[in-house]
Amino acid sequence: MLALEVKNLRKSYGDFQALKGVDLEVEDGEIFAILGPNGAGKTTLLRILAEGLGYDEGEVNVFGEPLSKKSARHIGYVPQESISYDLLTVKENLGFYADLYDAPREEVDNLISKFDLPPSSKAKELSGGLKRRLNLAISLLYDPKVLILDEPSTGLDVPSRKQLWEDIIKFRESGKTILIATHYMEEAELLSDRLTIMDSGRIIRTGKIEALKSLLGDRTVIHVSGILRGVDNLRKMFPRLIERRDSIRVHSDVDNTLSIVVEHLISSGSRIREIRVEEPTLEDVFLELTGKKLN
């Protein structure tokens, strides 16, 4: 059964088209990721699904019912920004949202215990990780079937991020459908059963991770790091080269790619520290499909 179904969804802000006819199907019980750079239209799509943001054209169904205040009750939304009130304590924040959503009062204490939250601390005193957990707890107050998370690990330190990922996996195990929007390929790759690549308000490709990676065929990727010179000339030969601060990634399109790259870099005066031949990642898939870097 489809938990979420989006058909030809269009949304504009003035002259800017944020969504240009998005189609999406999320199966009940799966973790589905939307991978795309900032400005791809991910947040707009999630806000239409979870916050009732109006749209210009298209159709949205939740478990087969058209999206409405009633059907939206199946959806719990964890936005990027904190939705707690700074001057209220954790318990008071949860209590307020419990009243707003007419959720059982005992869920407040259950969720405080489940997420190990300090009940008497004011929201403004919480760390970024705890604030995100409070957001999660709020969205689970009325036990929604679908949980939508917008950039859940942005701004979190490594331990908080790992804790959050564990929580998300547990939600799936408890039967919830999870929809995550992220621009971190590691997050999408680790958590999702299926994902869609989104760019400039369009869905580029949807599928399982392995299926998406298979779009690159047997291609490998050459990773070179060090003090690199002559990268601009190299890009003329390999347009899909990804440049980072002290490394490059080059798609190995032909058999002698490695020797061409190394020879060019050395002759340009580069001091190579490391060369690796890797399997393609989602970032490489994204580059292949959109011609753009993900981050």
Binding site: E81, I83, Y97
Partner: peptide, 13 residues
């Protein structure tokens, strides 16, 4: 400004 009104609007209230 804090974004909490969006949550209130999305709620059954």
């Amino acid at each position: 400004e804090k974004g909490t009104l969006k949550r209130v609007v999305a709620s059954p209230a």
